[in-house]
Amino acid sequence: MSDFNSSIIDYDKIQIIKLKGYLDAHTAPLLEENFTELISKNKFNIIVNFKDLNYISSAGLGVFMAYIEKIRENKGDIKLTEMNEKVYNIFDLLGFPLLYEIFESDEQAIKKFSETKSE
């Protein structure tokens, strides 16, 4: 069965979207809703945590492409964390590390956000 869910954690001025399960063409709209919701609330500092994500197809990858520009125009960013090797491999094959910062932990991504803010 396709099961996917996501939850948003509010961490000071940073929002952490935690992904779980299978992200494909069927479940990608759920993640789109998360981004749309955060953008509508002017929340542009976003971390996406992949720790519990088992699978991603190109439809899932497309979601990140769809929102990144809007978020950066508003001086925010999408930072990605805790990908398993398989999921990272797919991001890497398509060149995503050129456009997105990928960290081993949320803490590292949070630190990067605070450094950028104080520059």
Binding site: S57, S58, A59, L61, G62, V63, M65, A66, I68, E69, I90, L93, L94, G95, F96, L98, L99
Partner: peptide
């Protein structure tokens, strides 16, 4: 796919066949 070009063109697809 060229990811930088995709970003400029706001493209969200085209990765599937490559994979």
């Amino acid at each position: 796919p060229d990811i930088r070009k995709y970003q400029r063109e706001h493209r969200v697809g085209g990765f599937g066949l490559y994979l």
